[in-house]
Nucleic acid binder design. Structure first.
Lengths: 358, 358
DNA sequence: CGGTTTTTGGCAAACGTTTGCTATGAATCG
DNA sequence: CGATTCATAGCAAACGTTTGCCAAAAACCG
């Protein structure tokens, strides 16, 4: 019992490269080379080493390797606040796409959550400055900085998703939210709508600014005054989408003159809003057209099926990885700073022409 | 340009512990101790060291530390197949809860995706055997093994979620699916339903076996024959939930004698199924009661609002982390092997009494 | 067959920490 | 005031790789 460490620890730290070398009858350095760049070692020796490694079940120690070569192959993704976005699936979709692309290139994904507290910022910075990660993808957030350290100075490649930071030198992958909303709004105007209701995301949020901007652009082009739209919300985060929809329904109910078209900035809010509207006896799309944002699959099965602007989550994830790996590998190629992935409107029954006289 | 590595690499690898030591005028070892266990060093020295570290923006190198002490503080979660589950949010919810708990204890979360290909299995095993991770949480999957290596022998603490592996010595966190479904089915029987339609998950899947088992238990207790239920599906993965619902709707349509109650094993399938049913002119719950599984928030806003069995995702995540950390820290405490987190039925309008004569 | 080039393998020094052991100085006690 | 103990700091050896450099062997050439 005194040497229980020995007893239960047979495979405690597994076979070492030295063990493989001994079994194969070569030097450690030869094993290292055989495993890493097989070209630099005799084929027969390599085969012997491979066999020995397999026989022993040898796995190289990643930390030792990382320490020696000064890099890891872990990529960190920094996610904003809660991962839990109700019906909106963009976070898991993005994670999925990123993880898949990274795996193909031999990298591993680590997730970090950027809450508003110092602890999470510090944690992220430690990961970055402590050499744990090789590069970072940051989703819809500004770069964390605390106590003199900023993610920007960690000496790591960074790619921003959704938030355009190309102006500050961070390569960014973004969608064309503004144009997408402008086009959808223009469609609604063309369908005869003149009074709009806008369900906002958090006030000042980059996406909300862009999206509302798209509405106003369409108004200008269509000759509508800015007063043709009533804004609701702005207090809650996108994560509380269902709640936003409910509050907006109350706001809507209080309106003397009802709008005929609704633009929601997430599927969650559109869904809960529409549910309330039906409860109030309004018919969609006869009384009210609704278009929303995110492209959640569930929209197809709402009643009526909900028009939504699809966020190209997978494509964005893949693009972000491409940009990041490019920055990691071609150390000084001045690649594109900004990549725009188009969102597209999926038209469903919730949007219809304004036939009623009124 | 020849020494561009020097030029652009001022902060290439950041300040070292040696730099802090020099600035503070003490030995490296003293710095190490001051930072790790502050008790073992004079308070005044410690303050000086802290100041120096802060001034330099020093961050300890995690790989060097990990190599030396033989452990990392990265926890890996192995997820099955796709992360993208439509309306079902349990994966992101679980991730969220796990990440939060881990952060509080100073650990970091790494995600690995277990697809059906060798590459992903190998990747996971390399992470485990290569010393990158300190412990593993595995979600609804069996332990990967390949070429003689099995995750079970990696010498790492493992906790299984959803899949009960306590019999093979892996501490597990599970829900009481079977009981939850049994109770819900019993409720439906009490409401007068006698013919059931069951939307299955993948054939042979642990959850599906449990859930269907729950249905049959309720039948036995309620005196119904096993023929009182028609099974549909079983070919697709839970991830393709919406698709399952659509196919099930076709199956349902082909039935000569229509069941009056539907038990769906995920919200996605229930939603798409219900959408089709309404398209076929059936009223829910008047013609058809529906109860489903997952507890997605969106269910509250379906029409009619959908009864669903809530998976306690957050609680499970927290419990899994607790068990894992316990295994990591109290190296040999024989803690509980199995923890059951109750699911609970959220009753909404989609379930109603069978009043029609028939 | 001797000399030259090429291939291949080995030695040993890094990488940045932690930690056992030892040395120093301060503090306590008789 | 000397002897003993205690707290604190420093030295140096690990941890498991990779890789620059050199030596040995093999292959080639004249």
């Amino acid at each position: 019992m005194s040497k229980n460490k020995e007893m239960l620890g047979e495979e405690q730290s597994g076979p070492l490269m030295a063990d493989v070398a001994k079994l194969a009858g070569v030097a450690i350095s030869t094993v290292s080379r055989a495993l890493a760049n097989p070209g630099r070692v005799n084929e027969k020796t390599r085969a012997k080493i491979d066999a020995a490694a397999k026989q022993l079940g040898y796995t190289p120690n990643a930390m030792a390797r990382g320490l020696r070569v000064g890099k890891s192959n872990i990529i960190m993704i920094v996610l904003p606040g809660s991962l839990y976005y109700g019906a909106s699936q963009i976070v898991p979709q993005v994670l999925q796409a990123i993880n898949k692309s990274l795996l193909q290139s031999g990298y591993t994904l680590m997730i970090a959550n950027l809450a508003r507290d110092e602890a999470s910022e510090r944690h992220i910075l430690n990961l970055a400055f402590g050499g744990t990660v090789r590069g970072t993808i940051i989703l819809a957030s500004k770069l964390p900085e605390l106590e003199g350290r900023s993610l920007a100075n960690a000496g790591l490649p960074i790619v921003s998703m959704l938030l355009d930071m190309s102006a500050s030198g961070v390569p960014s992958v973004v969608t064309n939210d503004r144009e997408a909303v402008r086009d959808a709004t223009a469609d609604l105007i063309r369908l005869g709508h003149r009074r709009f209701f806008y369900l906002a995301g958090p006030e000042g949020n980059y996406h909300d600014v862009e999206r509302f901007g798209g509405v106003l652009e369409a108004f200008r082009e269509g000759g509508l005054p800015e007063t043709a739209v009533v804004r609701s919300g702005g207090k809650l985060d996108y994560q509380q989408g269902f709640e936003i929809g409910l509050q907006a329904a109350d706001d809507f109910a209080a309106l003397a003159e009802k709008p005929t078209a609704v633009i929601a900035t997430s599927d969650d809010m559109a869904i809960s809003f529409m549910s309330r509207m039906k409860g109030m006896g309004l018919a969609v799309p006869d009384d009210l057209s609704i278009v929303s944002f995110d492209g959640s699959p569930v929209c197809a099965f709402c009643s009526p099926p909900l028009s939504t602007i699809e966020q190209p989550a997978e494509e964005m994830g893949t693009a972000a990885v491409d940009m990041l790996l490019e920055a990691i590998e071609d150390t000084d190629a001045p690649s594109a700073m900004r990549r725009v992935i188009p969102s597209r409107l999926i038209v469903r029954e919730s949007m219809a022409g304004r036939v009623k006289s009124d």
